[in-house]
Amino acid sequence: MPGQIDDPHSRRYRALGTGLAVPIYVFLLAPIVVTVPMAFGPTNALTFPPASYSFDLFRIFFNSPAWLGSLFESLKIAIATTALAMIAGTLAGYWMARHEFAGKGLVTSMIMSPSIVPIIVIGLGLYLYFSYLRITGTTLSIVLGHVMVTLPYVIVMVVAGVNKLDRNLEFGAELMGAGPMQMFVTVVIPQLVPSLVSAAFFAFLLSFDEVIIAWFLAGPNTVTLPVKMFNALHWEISPVIAAVSTLMTALSLLVCIVAIGLRKWTPTDV
């Protein structure tokens, strides 16, 4: 314990704390530790540790049109979602951070609702609504669904970023004759870059990993990687899934490193 007198007695309790925590770290990391070696294992059996090592499972993945197609579908959706969520989220977040108005609390909770409402409810709602609009099964429908669930997180991160800015710079730019758009692009955006980069990575990962909404909206030609994986885990578990899992974990690790590099652990409060 920091600041405490360091006697053998308290050292013993610290060892106890570490002893209790280590198995939990192991438990948390176990899925990754188990999956990654298996991805380099043989193609006929899922055993840990693998009997032999090769790139065969990755070769199967990259030679299968079905898996590769779902990978591209997921990438397409995640890129489009990130672009749309960043544009809408940056503008809306900046406006929310800089304006006080009657009913702001209500508007905030409406915008934040997709982060609290169970995803299944959103998934069903999107499915029913998009059936009415006759766009279920399209890539567009999944992108819109993902924009809906990623927006709250983007907005939270933008609001947090804007709250740290010095407002006088914005006033100064406007006094010097910059229009609101010019001021926003040349003064606000450059200062927000770290928040925006971590928000973009987070939005990308949320969309790329999202299962439930894509599961409700997917058509025969718009099966995303997580939906294909969910189906595979549900019906028959094949060793290729280890390779898919490893690719997804690599992406998570990348986002994790970016997030830590930019010192934004996780979006928490508004």
Binding site: L28, V34, V211, L233, T249
Partner: peptide, 20 residues
């Protein structure tokens, strides 16, 4: 060690625990 599992896909975890 906490953040990497935090960002790991739930599907990856489900797959791993079926194997474990």
């Amino acid at each position: 060690l906490v953040l990497l599992p935090f960002w790991t896909s739930i599907l990856v975890k489900c797959f791993a625990f079926t194997v474990i």
